[in-house]
């Protein structure tokens, strides 16, 4: 009975303390009877043992079934967990970017991309950990969430028929935030001290800050609320028109870059890259305006 003894030893290590001896005695009795019945039908004792143990199953699986709960977060509260986790992570991302935007200029320091990403990842991991821990506590204490019960169908009045793509909106929050950090010289992608920008950039510095800042707040509010309201659609259109309004003078400017040293990117290539980026952002804005207009044009 060596196999059975080894099996029971493995199971016993994984069983809940309460009732452990009782469970082991019952399993032992059942296995012995199973072995005895199979052995009597003509199989060797060892084969009979292997058969009986296989019928019972893997020690981890069997022992696990004696525990009261087999999951950390159950299906009743999992949708709320997933919803909250996504939104908290995006909110943390926004806070992280905002802190970078306002705190680091005060410290008169600049950030490098690798440092920002490493610190951001650490913040997101801690956020996910605490949210998960909170929900696991709710699950294990047997509390129920009133989150879904409080929902009122009347809130649909403020909503629109445009579905909110959570990933896209979260991505927009990230892009808006990174742009603001870069635009304000807090985040540096590459050494650009050799480039002397034309006067047009000074003219659009604050308008771009205001418009992209408002976009950042709009996208963040969408992530938190979880749906596009008609008001949000209108704001999206206005802000995208504002972006087109900023891009127009760049496209028409006589002098985009005054100077670019020969060791770095040639001036002509740099100007073409800027024109390409302007065209891409303009197309993107037009696409966003179209997406916001379609649901607005449907009758209420």
């Amino acid at each position: 009975m060596t196999l059975i003894e080894n099996y029971l030893t493995q199971v016993s290590q994984l069983l809940p303390k309460e009732g452990r001896d009782d469970i082991l005695a019952e399993l032992r009795q059942s296995l012995e009877e199973g072995v005895s019945t199979t052995h009597e039908s003509g199989k060797t004792k060892r084969d009979a043992e292997i058969e009986a143990l296989a019928r019972l199953g893997h020690p981890i699986k069997v022992a696990g079934r004696y525990h009261p709960q087999q999951y950390l977060i159950g299906p009743a509260i999992f949708p709320a967990y997933r919803y909250l986790l996504g939104r908290v992570l995006v909110a943390l991302l926004a806070v992280h970017l905002a802190v970078s935007l306002f705190l680091f200029p005060a410290l008169e320091t600049t950030l490098h991309m690798g440092d920002v990403i490493a610190h951001l990842l650490a913040v997101l991991c801690w956020g996910a950990f605490f949210i998960t821990l909170g929900f696991v506590s709710v699950e294990y204490t047997g509390e129920t969430l009133k989150f879904f019960d409080r929902w009122n169908a009347q809130t649909l009045q403020q909503a629109s028929t445009r579905p909110l793509e959570f990933g896209d909106t979260a991505w927009n929050v990230l892009i808006d935030g990174l742009f603001l950090l870069w635009w304000n010289n807090i985040l540096i992608f590459a050494d650009s001290t050799h480039i002397l920008p034309g006067p047009i950039w000074d003219d659009i510095f604050w308008p771009a800050n205001v418009i992209v800042g408002l976009m950042f707040l709009l996208h963040l509010s969408l992530v938190v609320r979880g749906y596009w309201s008609r008001w949000a659609l209108k704001t999206e259109i206005v802000l995208n028109l504002g972006i087109l309004g900023i891009l127009a003078p760049i496209a028409m400017a006589d002098t985009l870059v005054i100077e670019s040293t020969a060791s770095e990117v040639p001036r002509r290539i740099l100007i073409n890259v800027i024109y390409g980026a302007v065209a891409a952002i303009a197309l993107w804005s037009l696409w966003d305006i179209r997406k916001a207009l379609i649901p607005l044009m449907r009758p209420l």
Binding site: G19, I23, S30, R55, G57, V62, R65
Partner: peptide, 11 residues
């Protein structure tokens, strides 16, 4: 029904 399911269930 396999024993690994039945015994925890009756318990």
């Amino acid at each position: 029904i396999d024993e690994g399911t039945l015994y925890p269930l009756i318990r």
